[in-house]
């Protein structure tokens, strides 16, 4: 249990709905759910969710804090927005799932090693470095996330695709030395730092 998580538990006691409303992106919309289940039936990865969005909304109201935040369900979201456009109550379901995943991740209680959690972290850290995504280092960092051995195996399996991309002019081996970048990197980083500072203060991440 992380300190941030202990503090959150102490602050909200058993009122998980209030915690979600105050701290999770678009969380104030959770109570609008009327349990119709259209979201659960609309998700392309539906069978892989241990708890469907419909169930998660009810679990939040029932105070099942640990079961929700430690589950890998929200990490199944592909951001296809099918649930959003079909929801008869117009809940921003995609954003709430993202928000729950982000909240669990920041509290340090999201499932360890969950592949989408790991990739999402790699992706963000890649893009903020230069302000633009470096597709080569992103791919390599992802392949080698579980160490050299598994990384080499994946790289071998994918080498034909990689070479094809290079030959098609869609992947640049030279990006290993830097690659594309915004010019005003200091300004970009200053904006990010300030935004993070404000968000951390609002959501209780800055202890």
């Amino acid at each position: 249990m992380s300190d941030l998580n202990t503090q959150a538990v102490a602050r909200y006691k058993n009122n998980f709905l209030r915690e979600v409303e105050e701290r999770v992106e678009e969380g104030d919309m959770v109570k609008m759910c009327m349990q119709c289940g259209v979201c659960a039936g609309s998700c392309p990865l539906g069978p892989h969710w241990q708890h469907s969005p419909q169930k998660i909304f009810m679990m939040i109201r029932a105070g099942k804090r640990e079961e929700v935040l430690t589950s890998d369900s929200m990490w199944m979201c592909t951001s296809c927005y099918n649930c959003i456009v079909r929801c008869p109550r117009q809940l921003p379901i995609t954003h709430i799932m993202h928000g729950l995943a982000n909240y669990a991740h920041r509290l340090g209680i999201a499932p360890k090693g969950q592949p989408t959690r790991e990739f999402a972290k790699t992706f963000w850290n890649n893009l903020i470095k230069k302000g633009r995504v470096n597709e080569l280092t992103l791919t390599l960092a992802h392949y080698f996330a579980n160490g050299i051995g598994p990384g080499i195996q994946i790289a071998l399996n994918m080498q034909k695709i990689g070479l094809g991309m290079v030959l098609a002019g869609r992947l640049n081996p030279m990006e290993i030395f830097g690659g594309h970048s915004v010019k005003d990197l200091n300004g970009f980083h200053a904006v990010l730092a300030k935004a993070k500072e404000i968000e951390d203060r609002k959501k209780g991440f800055s202890a």
Partner: peptide, 9 residues
């Protein structure tokens, strides 16, 4: 996919 580490603001 930026949501998890990046958050909202």
């Amino acid at each position: 996919i930026g949501y998890a580490e990046g958050g909202e603001l």
